[in-house]
């Protein structure tokens, strides 16, 4: 089952070298030391190389400008590269809806949407979220009007302490956009990355089903005094 190293197809140039055809180090060195070499490369190669070298200039470790598009609004912050998206949202943008509960990608309370896809904001650098549309829980209700899912979460009691609720709403919002009539199993699979210590899962699943126009019946049986007196 072993293969010989290197027996696959030869690597394509673009993966290894700068667009100029030189390795990054060689290119930078040549620019710095020999105008002749640079001239020999031709203006186009030099400008490509420069553009790449420029793009590959490390930033930080001090604070650098980071522009985030949050709930449709562009905001620029000065952040160290090590600042997480969650820290930026909660600490800098003043959006405390996404919660910090584990800070290790294990609970889902910090979930936000990145271009519509649920991610753990605690485990992504803010600087990495530049250029993406970030949606937080604050961006779900429009003009104070709850979304159908949010309404269902309230009506079906899909929450207890509510600390996991923003994350649950984000994940389910993404699910319902992709899959407007999810089965119970699909809902459970979608919220597998979100923990709720109060144990509201049955009602959260019910809320997601109700929001998609499906039956979300209660499992509660209420037995009146009369009936159980007889029993």
């Amino acid at each position: 089952m072993k293969r010989n190293p290197g027996d696959a197809a030869a690597p394509s140039g673009s993966e290894v070298f700068l667009a100029s055809g030189l390795s990054r180090r060689t290119f930078l060195k040549s620019l710095g030391t020999s105008a002749v070499t640079a001239a020999a490369m031709g203006a186009e190669q030099v400008s490509q190389g420069l553009a790449q070298a420029n793009a590959e200039r490390p930033v930080g470790p001090g604070a650098v400008p980071v522009t985030l598009t949050v709930n449709g609004e562009k905001k620029t912050f000065r952040l160290e590269p090590r600042v997480t998206l969650l820290e930026a949202l909660r600490g800098e943008a003043g959006l405390t809806g996404a919660k910090e509960a584990c800070d290790r990608a294990t609970c889902g309370a910090c979930t936000v949407l990145l271009d519509g896809t649920p991610v753990y904001a605690c485990s992504m650098l803010a600087i990495e979220a530049q250029g993406a549309e970030i949606t937080t829980i604050e961006g779900i209700a429009k003009n104070g009007e709850l979304s159908a899912l949010q309404k269902a979460m309230v009506d079906k009691d899909g929450l207890q302490c509510g600390y996991c609720s923003p994350g649950m709403v984000m994940v389910l919002t993404a699910l319902l956009r992709k899959n407007p009539r999810p089965t119970e199993a699909e809902v459970r699979h979608a919220i597998a990355g979100n923990l709720c210590r109060c144990g509201s899962y049955p009602r959260i699943v019910a809320a997601a089903r109700a929001a998609s126009g499906q039956s979300a019946g209660t499992k509660l049986t209420f037995i009146s005094s009369h009936d159980h007196a007889v029993a």
């Binding site: 959006l95 405390t96 809806g97 996404a98 937080t136 829980i137 604050e138 779900i140 209700a141 709850l146 949010q150 979460m153 309230v154 009506d155 009691d157 899909g158 929450l159 509510g162 609720s165 923003p166 709403v169």
Partner: peptide, 12 residues
């Protein structure tokens, strides 16, 4: 439905 439900599901 709980009275603080809307605040909790909106992040408010």
């Amino acid at each position: 439905p709980r009275v603080d439900g809307p605040a909790k599901v909106t992040g408010r």
